[in-house]
């Protein structure tokens, strides 16, 4: 038994140290990496508590997806654009400290009341074993008792996704691309930038050259002699 306690203290100690690193690190990427370390250790503690599904879900969802996205954003943003980490006004810092304390108190209250009362909850080990394991137990509980909250959460996430898409606004990218095409491409001399009214060469008209199928639903026009230039076609439907 002692060895398990030892392992638990090891995991918990690393988790706490990593959590401290999240707050203390100057570099936001280092913070995120510390958070990952903390999450992994917490997942290991879940395994010790025989909650393997929870542990794996923690790793997949939090470390595998969310923190990766956080890192993604951090890398896209220039370092000097980030807000000062340990700065802020004194009032804001005091409020943040207080909020942290309140959160800690809430968690402690929840844990203490549960363990002091000694209530094992609605799924004692025998009941879990009866349905085949903790995954099955979680599944049953989620999709029977908590059906409505699950659906509500799903709806909420969907709405959030749509909202994110709207905020990112793909058409804005199109707009900017159009601007980029007009202004920012360094083909400074291309005729649209300089002389939009005067087309440089007139478009070739229809033609009667042999057409050779060339694969990928394309055809190649096989010009036999050069006189046919003005009758040269070859083009027309696709415009930029």
């Amino acid at each position: 038994m002692a060895i398990e306690v030892l392992i638990f203290y090891l995991l918990a100690g690393v988790a706490i140290a990593a959590a401290a690193g999240v707050v203390l690190a100057r570099n936001p990427v280092h913070s995120a990496v510390s958070l990952v370390l903390s999450f992994v250790n917490v997942a290991a503690i879940y395994v010790m508590l025989r909650a393997e599904f929870l542990a794996v879900a923690q790793v997949i969802v939090y470390t595998g997806a969310i923190i990766v996205l956080v890192l993604f954003v951090l890398m896209l943003v220039q370092q000097q654009d980030l807000p000062e980490f340990h700065g802020g006004r004194p009032l804001r810092r005091a409020v943040g400290f207080l909020l942290g304390l309140v959160l800690l108190a809430e968690v402690a209250a929840a844990i203490l009341t549960r363990s002091l009362r000694g209530a094992p909850g609605s799924w004692p080990p025998e009941a879990v074993a009866a349905v085949g394991g903790n995954i099955q137990a979680i599944g049953r509980e989620l999709y029977s008792v908590y059906m409505l909250p699950i659906q509500a959460t799903a709806l909420l996430l969907l709405a959030a996704t749509v909202g994110a898409l709207f905020l990112a606004r793909p058409e804005l990218i199109e707009e900017r691309l159009a601007v980029a095409r007009r202004l920012f491409t360094i083909s400074l001399a291309h005729p649209r930038g300089v002389d939009p009214l005067q087309p440089v060469a007139e478009l070739p008209g229809p033609h009667d050259n042999e057409r050779k199928p060339a694969g990928g639903d394309r055809v190649l026009v096989m010009a036999r002699n050069a006189e046919e230039f003005t009758e040269q076609p070859a083009w027309g439907e696709i415009r930029r």
Binding site: A189, H190, P191, D195, V200
Partner: peptide
């Protein structure tokens, strides 16, 4: 000639 021909660039 750049205003006439882009290739003059």
């Amino acid at each position: 000639l750049v205003p006439l021909f882009a290739g003059a660039n």
